[in-house]
């Protein structure tokens, strides 16, 4: 039998990254400060994880100015959505197998 752990996404195994992707999939787009509030993490911590997700091309970043303040918006890419879906499926399989 195939090992279901192999299907887990290495990038999404970190809980904060998984939570970021959850927010970006449930919403059209989300900005940095709202994400920080939602996840209750520090600036630096969140920035590191956003960079990692960006590097994998799971998310896209767009920067703009609102009332002369910089605002960074994130969106999940199609690639990110697929990876997220696969990762959840794998998580469910892992949990189900262990329960048997």
């Amino acid at each position: 039998m195939k090992n279901p752990f192999e299907n887990l996404d290495k990038v999404l195994e970190h809980r904060v990254r998984l939570q970021i992707m959850s927010v970006l999939i449930a919403n059209d787009s989300y900005d940095f400060s709202s994400l920080k509030e939602m996840l209750a993490v520090t600036d630096g911590n969140l920035a590191t994880h956003m960079k990692a997700l960006e590097k994998e091309k799971y998310i896209t970043v767009s920067k703009s100015f609102i009332d002369r303040k910089p605002s960074t918006k994130y969106k999940a890419t199609e690639r990110g959505r697929n990876a997220f879906r696969k990762h959840i499926d794998a998580l469910e399989t892992v949990v189900k197998q262990q329960k048997q």
Binding site: A26, N27, I88, L91, V94, V95, Q98
Partner: peptide
């Protein structure tokens, strides 16, 4: 490799994050 308990927590946190952020 993480414990299965941790994976269950992952699944639960996906749910709360999605609801909390979108609703």
């Amino acid at each position: 490799m993480k414990e299965v308990k941790e994976y269950e927590k992952d699944l639960a946190s996906i749910r709360t994050m999605m609801e909390r952020s979108a609703k």
